[in-house]
Computed example of a mutant assay.
Amino acid sequence: MYLYHYFDKSIGPFRSISDLSVEEAKKVLEKIKKDKPNSQCALRHDKYLEDRLYYESILRELFIKKGGRVERQNPYYMVVEHSPWLSTWYENCDFIKIPIEEFDIDTISFTYGDSHPTFSPRVNDGREYRKKLYNYYEILEIIKKYGLPQDWNNDGRFGPERYVEAHIWSDKVIYRYINKYLQNEL
């Protein structure tokens, strides 16, 4: 299994607005809307940041309850295997692909689909993976049961899930790959 991280080449990998103050993050979102109006990120609604921080607090709390190891306040986001849809999000898209074996699996949580609709009160379709966070072994069972969403729902016709989201709660492997990327070793 590989985990993928998609990003804009002009910004670089694993840059998270969650690591900024709310004021700084809002400025970044406004700049994206102004400078990159054709990117998916420019389409985010006005309460996106508040929602993101709220959903991240849910992810963190549930992962700790499952016995996961949280080494940073907010996760880095990746997805299980290639997502054709996510590869269209950025005007100058690139990605980093990391084998799951490089991570300590006790520092990774998963949602079947994006964490926002997974935990949103607006999505109430009764699917078993709504409002749930999984560890590595649990997500393997869900993938075995339903497949990868990008294989059956890349265009979003059958619901909001288009990929399996991975939440990386440690800097160790991420920093190593940021350095490799910056040194053109990937």
Rank of each mutant, 00 (worst) to 15 (best):
H167N: 10
Y55S: 05
N184A: 14
G126N: 08
D171V: 09
K33Q: 09
S87F: 03
V79W: 00
D19W: 02
H167P: 05
P37L: 01
A25Q: 10
L62H: 07
A42L: 05
G67F: 13
I17R: 00
I168E: 00
L49M: 03
E165P: 08
Y181A: 13
A166H: 04
D114R: 07
K34W: 07
L62K: 14
Y4W: 12
E71D: 08
I108Y: 03
Y48T: 02
F119Q: 06
K27V: 05
L186T: 14
E30G: 07
Y137Q: 11
L186R: 11
K34V: 12
D114Y: 10
P84V: 12
R176P: 01
L49K: 03
L133C: 12
I139E: 02
N92I: 08
H5F: 11
E128V: 05
S16K: 10
E185K: 15
I98G: 00
P149D: 12
R60K: 15
V22W: 07
G147E: 10
D114S: 15
I143G: 05
D51W: 08
D106N: 07
N124C: 10
S83K: 06
K97L: 06
R162C: 06
K27T: 04
E128H: 06
K26N: 15
I105M: 06
T88W: 09
M1Q: 00
T107D: 04
L186P: 05
D94Y: 11
R44W: 12
H167K: 13
N135D: 07
I32V: 14
G67E: 09
G156A: 05
V22R: 13
W152M: 01
S18E: 05
K9V: 05
H116I: 14
Y6C: 04
Y6I: 03
R122Q: 14
E50Y: 01
N92D: 13
D155C: 06
N135L: 00
E91L: 13
G68K: 08
K97H: 05
K144T: 03
G68L: 08
I108E: 01
L59D: 00
V123A: 10
I100M: 09
I11G: 02
S21A: 02
Y90F: 15
D151C: 10
D155V: 12
E185S: 15
K33P: 02
L20R: 02
S120M: 01
P99M: 04
D114M: 10
E161C: 05
S83Y: 01
L3M: 12
D46L: 07
V173T: 11
Y163A: 10
I17S: 02
P149Q: 11
E61L: 03
K132T: 07
D51T: 15
P13Y: 08
P84E: 14
W85D: 09
E56Y: 09
Y163L: 08
L3Q: 03
T88V: 07
W152V: 04
Y4E: 09
G126V: 11
T107K: 15
Q183F: 12
F95S: 14
S83F: 02
R52D: 15
F14D: 01
E101S: 13
I96V: 15
V173I: 14
H45V: 14
S57H: 11
S115V: 00
S87Y: 01
G159N: 08
L29T: 00
